[in-house]
Design a protein around this nucleic acid. Structure first.
Lengths: 201, 201, 201, 201
DNA sequence: AATGAATGAGAATTCATTCAT
DNA sequence: AATGAATGAATTCTCATTCAT
């Protein structure tokens, strides 16, 4: 990716996140990137192509990281805690791209949407799998795994809307807090975040 | 409100929720309402006026209901459970208007946004107040009340995005499940939803 | 003319004079008259009909007054002075309708324009006739009667653009001043305003 | 200024002068300029911007020329004659732009109007100054300098409405005639156009 | 690599006018 | 006499995109 191409993507990220895809014009994009609108088309396909690229990049990173979590942790509690930390950290550190992914799916044409939703489903599948595992082992206890998954994801994604790195809560702390909240929500013993082994008697 | 005016608002609700404010054109709106685009303007001010009306109506209803909850329940646990049931039920029963309120604030001009955000803040203030109460009485235990409030609201709002009244979970059940999840998240003893009195020894 | 009809014409006069015919909307007209735009059409034909009525009324009054001047004065100097006083007084007392007549002819369709221009030409014909008379008798001396006529009319019409009845100059004084200016311009002896008889030796 | 930009301004001049600002649509403008209405916006800001540009260009030229007159002539009679010739010549040679300046000020928004009126006032200030000078030296004699200034300007501006370069009167002749009329109107000895020195006894 | 020029389609909104009540 | 409802056509202006240079 050329530096200019990177600038274009950065500008798109900022504007799509702030005003939405339909609320952002090509000319605003060009101005924000410091280019003419014609030059913009050297570095992108259509406006929708650009959106898809941003979403795909963000989701692919997330999917890979989730796979990594599964590869490096075994127990449901540890895995879930790691997933929460990953998700919260991602959304706090990259609020622009996560908001675009979370909020602009409706702007995609059906074909493109399918592609993006498939990626998102892969990512959420990891969560589902861990929750199912925890329920099977008795580590978690919730009525509906699907409801819990959705509740957890929405709750953690919200961080992208308000986290302020200059604010009172440091990001690692926040990620830990969310891990505790999540495990409580799942009916897990939050003290046993490190693994699924029983607590000392 | 005339029946035609009602039709206009209904059409706006459906399209704004599905495609977003900027993704919805006046002509689509008119067609969806079964009117010419000129006639539309008999029943609304600007497109933004229409959006604000929808948002205000939804938020005012929610604020009034939250005030009602506070008026009819005393303990933090009971209040929190009632707020969760209110929020979840509202979002499940009126997914269109709640999604518009939750997703389209960014489309408002600064002046209009202030007005809407003030209403939303009033509503969220009720949640904050109840969480603070629970922390003071020892009914809840979380590190940060603000983090918990945000986590809870995001988690409950998500219902508007996926709840299907024809699906496997009945709405009252769902509301109960969410109340349990919420109280767990807050570190409350979820069995004691009815009050803040200590459990039997 | 009904009182309401009069109100409509008054409103049209004020708005056409201030914003011009094309700059005035039917709805503004209705609001200014205190009626609904549909009711307006009870008291008028089309918007252009309304404009033509206003113009015709104004011009017919002026034409009649000019005929009257010719009927009651004989000498070119007396007649010219009287025409100037008539024109200046009309434009100062009825600035709205005179400005509409002077400025909005271009807004008329060709057919309507012919009608209005014919009236205006009749009025200006009186001026032309008097100037010709003065040149024939030697009372006036200008190179071109047509140039003088135009210069005089433009000069006197301007009064409608700035005369303030509450200002420092009283209208009769102003009319006299203009008569003096006009006769000077025509090379007449302005002291002999009362008639064409030679001054006392 | 690009040639196309020049074409746009020319088209605007012709249509604004003929039909007025509000009577001229963007599409008519585009068609008249031989462009699509979207392309038009490559060469202008808003329609009002275009109007202001035309007015400003015209008035700035006139102001500069008036300053030049004052710089090159000393006596009130000579100056006034030169101002009249300048004004008449300008209005005869550039009837479109002068009519737009004279007739469309009312179409400007308050802010833009202030700017244009300030320029116009500067120009008229030159006339006022010369008339005051002539009154002070005794070269002119009128009751009110302000009335005379207005009468003169209106009278001379009218030329833009009827002068025909193919007509019977040549422009230099016309300008001279107007200078004579103007000086007569001011009570000056029109034979002494060249200066303020007394005539030979 | 970069851009000024160009445009058909579409944006939101207002237009003058009609008509049933 | 009065008006709310209705609309096709028009308004000004912006859209995303292409292309010759």
């Amino acid at each position: 990716m050329t530096p200019t191409g990177e600038r274009v993507r950065r500008a798109a990220l900022e504007l799509f996140a702030e005003r939405g895809f339909h609320g952002t014009g090509i000319r605003q994009l060009a101005e924000h990137a410091g280019l003419s609108s014609a030059t913009l088309y050297h570095y992108m396909g259509t406006k929708e192509d650009l959106l898809v690229e941003l979403m795909r990049a963000s989701l692919e990173r997330l999917v890979a990281a989730a796979d990594d979590v599964l590869a490096h942790h075994a127990g449901a509690t540890a895995r879930l805690g790691a997933l929460v930390r990953l998700h919260v950290t991602s959304h706090a550190e990259r609020p622009l791209e996560t908001r675009v992914v979370d909020d602009e799916v409706h702007a995609l044409s059906p074909e493109r949407r399918r592609e993006v939703v498939a990626l998102r489903d892969r990512y959420e599948g990891a969560w589902q799998q861990v929750i199912d595992q925890g329920l099977a082992t008795g580590a978690f206890s919730v009525e509906s795994a699907a409801v819990a998954r959705r509740a957890l994801l929405e709750m953690c994604s919200g961080v992208a809307r308000w986290f302020d790195p200059a604010g009172p809560v440091a990001l690692p702390d926040l990620a830990d807090q969310y891990a505790v909240l999540a495990l409580r929500l799942l009916g897990a013993d939050a003290r046993r975040v490190g693994g699924d082994t029983p607590p000392p008697v």
